[in-house]
Amino acid sequence: METYILLGFVLVLSIYLGLELISKVPSTLHTPLMSGANAISGIALVGALMLAVGDQFGQLQEVLAFLAVTFASINVFGGYLVTNRMLKMFKKK
């Protein structure tokens, strides 16, 4: 139970942190910020990896872990590169 209370603290604090971080951002940066935040949500890749390094394995888990790793890494690589491309476009202006 202790662990869940601590996790609850982390959840609440990160909600406030998120609100704080996105306030006062110029509107031209909204799209790259959203794209960057989406890339960060690819941190689910770490969860997928933990799944894939686990030793209790069935056929189904193996397939699901592989699919999860693949799609999460599409999100991570694609997300960061797209954000970088957008930001470079802003610099030229």
Binding site: T31, M34, S35, N38, A39, S41, G42, A44, L45, G47, A48, L51, L64, A65, L67, A68, V69, F71, A72, I74, N75, G78, G79, V82
Partner: peptide
């Protein structure tokens, strides 16, 4: 494309 990437992230979470 950002929408598509976001969807893939969701799919990964779903599989996990």
């Amino acid at each position: 494309m950002v929408a598509l990437f976001n969807g893939f992230g969701g799919l990964a979470t779903f599989f996990i």
